[in-house]
Design a protein around this nucleic acid. Structure first.
Lengths: 242, 242
DNA sequence: GAGTGGTCTAGACCACACC
DNA sequence: GTGTGGTCTAGACCACTCA
């Protein structure tokens, strides 16, 4: 259905963009899946192809879809997976090429939430959580140490096996029906502690980046709090200005 | 003159975008100055307004120009002034509002370049440089400590007075005719030293961000190397993912 | 060859800023 | 009012991909 409000003061292309986003959230269009052609979308929404293109252009710019000449548009794999990482440059190599990125699960366990985590996760008192510790490599060098915290309310009990062949977000969605609505991520400078230093193979008390991310589900509840420690000697952030 | 190559395989809108960039570099269009209207540009380049708009849209997205409905488009003030800072969020406040940003010059002197600086600035042996140290405040709190290094070849001798009412880039352009071509900036985590800590009013050996920026002129030579130390307790970087 | 996205034209109407 | 950027239409041709 082309649910376009022709009387709204909101431009058509914005309405179309929002509608497509909504369809992606509702898994009508799934990651990796081909979108209908611009021609078809134009008919469906009863607008010209130009207007559809304007909507798709914005989605492309935001990394929601990918387009290929002569082929079509496909929905990107969860943008939330990428996050700030897309801005990093790893040493002299190019950013987030999926190929060379390998991850190892260090630990998965169920523990009571600390007061700080209860706050971050908006948990009730004495809440229990899954703790998942992973180490991400790039070309055999450990670069990122990730701590994920997921309330048992959200996912009863996660095991190491669950994470062998799928991401946390895939797991949450496929097995627990929790769809991700949005996430907010922050970047700070920090000094590594002894544990982090050892796993990342850097001198203790080295300067590192830390990111914190809070992911929320459709009902607005916190699905995950994730803290990542990123080597400062190998990973930089850069922009070029012209 | 609309110097559009109609036989090129390069799209018109890209050619137009490059041409406008070139005009900005050549100060035909200056920062703060109004661009010709889309209508006029379309005539000049002998294309439709739609095509001009596509070019302007990209320039707008890249922060080169600003457009205001009903008024027109103006060239942004040196984008290079903004840099990565536009991505930061200061505590709970919003990013780079010019108003509340005050800067104080701590020191200006001429010194021989250290070997490291010679390398960064691509200087010959025993090169001399201007060193400018500034402290930037936001709401009376020191947030950023900036070290600028400019070869004497570029600007013979800079004094504190020169920087009272204008930026370094304004100074280079107005008094020394050095126009900026491009800049590259990097962001790292670091640990503050005693001097930095004192000026920024933070405990010594605190985690901080450091940016390094290399600015080049039209001939490709390095005009400035700048190192900024940014408080990690007040400044964060954030993105929202939807 | 049929279908796709990429570019471009030649118009149109609107909301807004300025005089 | 006139001029501006913002949106939209209805076409067109192209280069590309895939069968």
């Amino acid at each position: 259905m082309g649910t376009l409000d022709k009387n709204s003061y909101i431009p058509y292309y914005v309405q179309i963009k929002e509608d497509i986003l909504e369809r992606i959230r509702n898994a009508i269009y799934r990651p990796g899946q081909q979108l209908p052609s611009e021609q078809v979308l134009a008919q469906e929404y009863q607008v010209t192809r130009t207007t559809v293109r304007k909507a798709l252009e914005e989605l492309k710019r935001e990394g929601v879809i990918l387009t290929e000449k002569g082929k079509g548009s496909v929905v990107s794999n969860s943008r939330i997976e990428q996050s700030l990482l897309q801005f990093y440059s790893f040493g002299r190599e190019i950013g987030t090429t999926v190929e060379a990125a390998v991850s190892r699960v260090i630990q998965v366990r169920q523990i009571p939430a600390s007061p700080q985590l209860e706050k971050k996760l908006r948990l009730a008192r004495n809440g229990k959580i899954n703790e998942i510790v992973r180490l991400r490599y790039y070309r055999n060098t450990p670069l990122i140490l990730e701590f994920s915290y997921i309330p048992l309310e959200v996912a009863p009990s996660i095991t190491q096996n669950d994470l062998q062949y799928q991401s946390i977000y895939d797991l949450l969605e496929r097995f627990y029906g929790k769809r991700i609505q949005k996430a907010k991520e922050y970047l700070y400078p920090r000094i590594s502690d002894v544990y982090e230093s050892e796993l990342l193979q850097i001198p203790k008390h080295s300067p590192v980046f830390q990111t914190e991310r809070i992911t929320r589900g459709e009902d607005g509840r916190v699905l995950e709090f994730r803290r990542s420690v990123i080597r400062g000697d190998k990973v930089a952030f850069s922009t070029e200005l012209k």
